[in-house]
Amino acid sequence: MSAPNARIRPATVLDAPDLAAVHLQAWRERYGDLLPEDVYAERAEHGPGQWEAMLADTAGPTTWIARRDGRAVGFAQATAPGAGEVRSLELTYLVVLAAEQGRRTGTHLLQLAIGDAPCQLWVLEGDERTIGFYGHHGFAPDGAHRPAFGGHLTEVRMLR
């Protein structure tokens, strides 16, 4: 028998500490030694306040939080990036802890955040697992690149 799906709901300002913790843990799991420790230290110091401010903005985008057994395991958020972008919707965050991957939580978060809308997103260059996940959901790289994490890494844009 398969495990039940994670429970997903819109996040509130009270979820800020959990979102910050999941964000930091997922970065450590995904990027490990690719990023210098000061990037993680900055995220640990400023993440909770940044999430609190973002979630307190009632005009801001909806952030979806996934919980399993009462513990935050992932989140997603999409925004309107503004004029001049190739898509009017951007998947800003889709973060799922490593232990939660393969349980369809990412797929459910993606569906809630963007549905089947045309969208853009950025993913770490060479991250074939993540690129494959998005490819499965109709995204493809369009050749655009940008520096990420203070220039330590490079991201590629994917479009649907």
Rank of each mutant, 00 (worst) to 15 (best):
S88I: 09
W64Y: 15
R157A: 00
E52I: 04
G106A: 01
E85Y: 13
V95Y: 00
H108G: 00
R129L: 02
V39M: 13
L159T: 15
R103E: 02
Q25C: 10
R160Y: 09
A11D: 06
I131L: 04
C119V: 15
H108F: 06
A56I: 07
A66F: 10
E37V: 10
I131F: 01
E125A: 15
I131N: 08
P141L: 00
Q25V: 08
G82D: 11
G126N: 06
P48A: 07
L89V: 15
R30M: 03
V123G: 02
V96Q: 00
S2P: 14
G60L: 11
V96N: 01
L112I: 01
G32P: 03
P61K: 13
G102Y: 00
L55Q: 07
R68Q: 15
A98M: 05
T58I: 12
L112N: 07
L109V: 00
V39N: 14
E52K: 14
V22D: 06
R104S: 10
E125F: 02
G150Q: 07
T79R: 15
R9C: 14
R129Q: 07
P48T: 10
G150F: 02
Y93M: 00
Q101H: 01
G32E: 13
A80V: 13
V22R: 07
A44M: 00
P36E: 14
G49C: 05
H152P: 02
L153C: 10
V39I: 15
G70W: 06
R160D: 06
A72L: 13
E37G: 08
L19Q: 01
L110R: 10
H137S: 09
A16F: 11
T63L: 11
P4H: 08
A59G: 12
T79D: 14
D15T: 14
A83R: 08
L121D: 11
T79E: 14
V13E: 10
R43K: 08
A53R: 15
H46V: 09
A98C: 07
A78E: 05
A83N: 04
V123Y: 03
R160Q: 04
F75W: 11
R103H: 05
E100C: 05
Y134N: 12
R68V: 06
Q50A: 13
T130H: 05
G151H: 08
V156L: 08
T107L: 10
S88G: 01
R9G: 07
V95R: 00
H23K: 08
W64S: 14
W64R: 12
G106C: 01
H108M: 12
V13D: 09
E29S: 07
C119S: 14
L112E: 09
Q77P: 12
A98Q: 08
L110E: 03
M1H: 14
T105I: 07
A56D: 13
E155M: 00
V13Y: 04
A144M: 01
A59E: 15
A72I: 08
E29W: 03
V156F: 01
G115I: 13
A44G: 02
M158S: 06
R67I: 02
V96F: 01
I114R: 04
E100K: 03
L109H: 02
P141E: 04
W51S: 05
T12Q: 06
T62G: 14
R87T: 02
D142G: 03
G115D: 09
R67P: 00
L153P: 12
A72M: 09
E45F: 05
I114N: 04
R104Q: 05
L24S: 03
R160T: 12
T63N: 04
E90M: 03
G102V: 09
A78H: 09
A53N: 12
A6W: 04
R157K: 07
I8C: 10
W64P: 12
